[in-house]
Nucleic acid binder design. Sequence first.
RNA 1: GGUCUGUUCGUCUAGGGGUUAGGACACCAGAUUUUCAUUCUGGUAACACGGGUUCGAUUCCCGUACAGACUACCA
Length: 511
Amino acid sequence: MSIERRVRTRFAPSPTGPLHLGGVRTALYCWLFAKKNGGDFLLRIEDTDQERFVPGAEEYIIESLNWAGLHYDEGPGVGGPHGPYRQSERKPIYRKYVDQLLTAGHAYYAFDTKQELDDMRERMTKAGMVSPKYDHVTREYMKNSLTLSKDEVDARLAAGEPYVVRIKIPRNEEIRLHDIIRGWVSVRSNELDDKVLFKSDGMPTYHMANVVDDYLMNISHVIRGEEWLPSAPTHVLLYKYLGWEDQMPQFAHLPLILKPEGNGKLSKRDGDRLGFPVFSLNWTDPFSGETSSGYREAGYLPDAYINILVMLGWHPTDNKELFTKDELIEAFSLERVSKSGAKFDPEKAKWYNHQYLKMTDNAILAEAFLPQLKDQGIEINLEYVQNVCGLIKEKATFMKDFWSLSSYFFKKPEHYDEKVIEKKWDAEASLFLSALINIFSTLTDFKSESAHKGFEEAAVSLNLKSGNYMQLFRVVVSGQASGPSIWDMVALIGKDEIVNRLQLAMQLYGK
RNA sequence: GGUCUGUUCGUCUAGGGGUUAGGACACCAGAUUUUCAUUCUGGUAACACGGGUUCGAUUCCCGUACAGACUACCA
C-alpha cells in the first residue's frame, strides 16, 4: 500500500429515485474525508439497471448535493480525467475485464433461464435450504460453461443464446478484508455465491462495474453503507483476480441510519409516513405522481442539515456539537465513526435548525423572509425586516415560521388570544390600559427602556402590579400570548402604532 | 435458516481495567424582580445477560440473548 496515494473518494448512487438521508450522509462522509486529506470527491452514477431508471432522479441527486454544499470535483456535468461518470456510458469498458476473468478461469458463462433458476431455488427450498445460492455446489447442476462441453458452449455463444457471466468463487478459502471502521472481517468462501458479473443485456452488475470503475478512477477509499459489507469479500476477490490487489481501495462501511421508532433502516419507502421527511428535496414520483417532502422545503438550512447528518454516526474528540463545514473538515476522521446504527431523532434535528437560525445573520434572514412578506402583500423597508428577524429568530425553528411569528410587526392583529383576554382583562385592566395610552402619548423618546418605564408608571399611578398586565399588554399589541422581548418589540413597532392598537383593543374589550 | 455486523441514560453519544460513567436532544423543576416556545440553573435517567482473565471489569476474552444488514441477471 503506497503511502503517497492521493485520496480519492466517490459517491456512487443509483438513480432510482430521490436521495434520502442516509445517502446524503454517505456523500457527506466521502466529501469530508476527501477534503480533510486534500483529495478529490467524485460523483458516479450507477445506472447499470435500465429497468429501474427513474426520470429526474439523477438531476435530483445532483441538486441535493449542491444544495447541501457537497460539490464534487469530478462527475456528470463537471467532467474530469476519468469520465464518463455514468456507468451506462461506460458500457464498452467493462467487457474487456469480463473477458480477462473468463480466460483466467475466474468467471464462467451461465445459460440458465429465469425459469431454470427458479426451479433450482424451489428444489433447494424443498430440500430444506432457506435461501439457495448459485454456488460451488449448485453450479454443478446448472447450465454453464463449467458443466457443458466446450463445443456446446461455443455453439450456444455462436447462436447468440443469452447468457450471463458469473464469478467462480473458490472453495474453502478464507477471505479477509480490512475495514477502517470495523477492523478485520473474514468470511469463508463457501458462504459466498457465484454472483452475476455481467448481465444478459450486456451490462455489468454493480459488483463488476463498481470494482472496475473504482480501479480506473483511482479511488483510494470506498466509503459506503453497511449494507454492502456482505458483498465486500466478493469485491476483494475481484480485485485479486483482476490483478489489482495493490490498488485495492481501503474500505469503510458506515453504520446504518435507523427509524426513530422500532427498528430497521430508514428507507426511501418511509417517505413522510414517519412524520418527518426522509429526502433532501421535495420529490414527485414520475410514475405514481406521489409527492414526498424534503428537508429544504421543510425549512432546514443546508448547514444545519449537514450538521444533523454528520452527528449520526460520527463524533468529535470533544463534546462540540455545532460545526461549520470548515470545522468539520478539520475534525473529521473515519476512525471516529461508530460501528452501530443510529436512530434518527427528528426532535434533535429541529433543535439543530433552531441553533443555525439563531446564528444566521439578520440580513440573510431578512432576504429569505422577503418572499413570504410579499405573498402577504407586505411591502416595507429592509432594515425594519432585519430588525424583526433579529427579534424573532430566537423563537423560530424554521424559516417558514417567520410569518406566523411576526405578522403583527407588519399589521394590526386580526385575532387576540382569547384565553389571555378572558383571564386578564378585568375592570382594572381597562383603567390601566387607558393610563398607558395617556403616558405613551406624551413620550417623545419611545424606546425599550422608556416604554418599559412608562408601563411601570401607569401601574404605580393606579397602585397596581405591572406584572399582572404584562401578558395582556402583549396580546393587545400582538394578538399572541408569547413572542420576543416585549419592550424591544414595542419599540420596533413604534409609539403611534402601539397607541393605536391600545385604543383599538379598548374599543373591543374595554369595560 | 445461513453469513456478516452490532449492543453505554428514552434518543445521539464520550469514555475506558480502579471515574461521583461525561456531554447533547427530549422530559421534569426553578430562575430571568411572575410575557413567552428563547436563554440560564438544577434534576430524573445508562454500561443487555452469563461465564472467564484479573487484586479489580462497564472497559479484555468466550458464550447467550436481542437487534440490524445481506441472502436477485437491484444497487
